[in-house]
């Protein structure tokens, strides 16, 4: 719950539209939402009650229309084994908690989701004010 608020704040500061920000408490709730609602990006923890993030990712990739959906894992699970497992299942990025805003935004850039100026260049988010994070 707390991390979802922090993530929402960071992605909004990075220029993403968070008006349609949807939240799920575990993997099953996330899948239920994804089956009904088109989304642009999934940010998911691995350790969650019920269905964890790895199983959610595995099931999500079995659904044809969700195979290309960007999924970034945001988790404390930092072993090579677990990172490789997520990436092999098609995770688009992997952010370890605790994270800086910059670290999360780094993962969003390659996905082409950040707002672009008229010249096509992504404006750098301003995280210089610590109290704003």
């Amino acid at each position: 719950m707390l991390i979802r608020q922090v993530v929402k704040k960071v992605v909004r500061q990075a220029g993403l539209d968070v008006a349609g920000f949807l939240e799920a408490a575990n993997g099953q709730e996330a899948l239920d939402i994804l089956m009904k609602t088109p989304v642009d990006l999934v940010l998911s923890d691995i350790n969650m009650p019920g269905m964890d993030g790895i199983e959610m990712l595995m099931r999500l990739r079995q659904i044809e229309r969700l195979q290309e959906l960007p999924v970034i894992m945001v988790t404390t699970e930092g072993s090579e084994e677990r990172i490789n497992e997520a990436m092999d299942l098609g995770a688009s990025g992997y952010v370890l908690k605790p994270f800086t805003p910059e670290r999360l935004v780094e993962q969003l850039g390659p996905l082409g989701l950040l707002c672009k100026r008229e010249d096509g260049v992504e404006p750098p988010p301003d995280f210089s004010d610590p109290t704003a994070f």
Partner: peptide
């Protein structure tokens, strides 16, 4: 607690 434990584990 989760983040402290995760960082300690790493």
């Amino acid at each position: 607690a989760n983040m402290i434990a995760g960082t300690l584990k790493r």
